[in-house]
Amino acid sequence: CGFTPAYAPQGGADTLSRAVQVRAPVTRNDYMLTRQLETRLGRAVAADYLLDYTLTVQDERIAITANNITRRFNLVGRASYTLTTMDGTTVTRGTVDSFTGYSATGSTVATRAARADAEERLTTILADQIVTRLIAAASAT
């Protein structure tokens, strides 16, 4: 059916392992996105590629009660990424987006914990989507 294992020797994806230097983080969301990308791709020792990204996260109120209490929030995330070789030629680029929700009907500390967890889940989803697209690009060449 035409599918081959991407990380098999002739699959091509293994060229990314321990070879991508991910952009340094600025915010907590960046930190989690970079951490997940480095965990999935393996920390670069002598990098052949640079992975740059810009990450935006906005929150939206949803499930408003009749007396105007916000029961839930959506965290809407978008990351656009660019993979370049060390001398700057672009290998591939793209954008990924998704959202995660968290409930705000618990106590204040439950809502804060739920929000922090939703941020971590969102950055994990975006990182996994970026890695999947990098695997597709690396195995296509």
Binding site: S98, S103, A113, A114, D117
Partner: peptide
């Protein structure tokens, strides 16, 4: 259980050690 009363399950925490937020 003051902080982990609202637990979500999605693709972001399918593969994780503990899905409780705290």
């Amino acid at each position: 259980n003051d902080e982990s009363t609202r637990v979500e399950f999605d693709e972001g925490n399918l593969l994780t050690l503990s899905r409780f937020p705290a």
